[in-house]
């Protein structure tokens, strides 16, 4: 019954050319009015249109004006990334969108809290490595530490990797906050 018929054109019209361009990772800064549902709107846009979102950081930045800044790390071909920028910029509560990666290498930082349980040598080694990574001890017990580490994603990744054999039991990360270099502020 369901054998494909031969000599008949495909029955679906949704014939898209496969993307052959290379994917890139970009960091976007999106300034929005902090109104209810604005984050859902942005996330919904990504899921509805099939864009990849890798990291998302949101916080109010100007309380009296009700403005929030969202940092999005996303991945796609240059064409898709341009679409993402355009789709974001036409959302009604969006003030402005900047592709920080396109504007130059932005400063990107994230914060992680890392809980490590261990005793003896492992405990000393964890403390020593934390010092090398400039991670701070924010909670200490006889059998555990919570470290606070700030830095580029790669540095945080590396620190977490090193903590694994030393008794890592829990991690929480903020996702990155990013800002452009130089004297210029983001256009509003």
């Amino acid at each position: 019954m369901n054998k494909p018929a031969t000599g008949i054109p495909p029955a679906s019209t949704y014939f898209m050319v496969p993307e052959s361009e290379r994917e890139e990772q970009h960091t976007l800064a999106v300034v929005v009015d902090n109104e209810p549902g604005v984050l859902a709107r942005i996330i919904g846009l990504f899921s509805a249109r099939g864009y990849n979102i890798e990291q998302l950081t949101v916080s109010e930045t100007e309380h009296d004006k009700g403005i929030s800044r969202i940092t999005i790390v996303c991945r796609g071909t240059p064409k898709i990334l341009a679409q993402i920028r355009n789709q974001l910029s036409r959302l009604v509560p969006v003030h402005s969108v900047a592709d920080l990666t396109m504007e130059g290498e932005p400063i990107e930082r994230e914060l992680a809290l890392v809980k490590v349980r261990g005793e003896g040598d492992k405990r000393i080694e964890a403390l020593r490595l934390a010092d090398a990574f400039r991670a701070r001890v924010v909670d200490a017990h006889t059998g555990s530490f919570v470290f606070e580490i700030t830095g580029k994603t790669r540095k945080v990744d590396q620190f977490i990797q090193l903590m694994k054999p030393l008794g890592l039991i829990e991690v929480v990360r903020t996702g990155i906050a990013a800002i452009s270099r130089g004297p210029e502020a983001m256009k509003m």
């Binding site: 019209t13 949704y14 014939f15 064409k79 341009a82 679409q83 036409r90």
Partner: peptide
């Protein structure tokens, strides 16, 4: 729209295209 272009990679292959639109997301979509 897909009902306009048909197969995309064979859509008006030899032309230079001007596109006027008020919606930035409609351009180069």
């Amino acid at each position: 729209d897909d009902r306009i272009t048909g197969r995309l990679d064979a859509f008006s292959p030899g032309s230079k295209k001007i596109h006027i639109d008020i919606d930035p997301a409609s351009i180069n979509k």
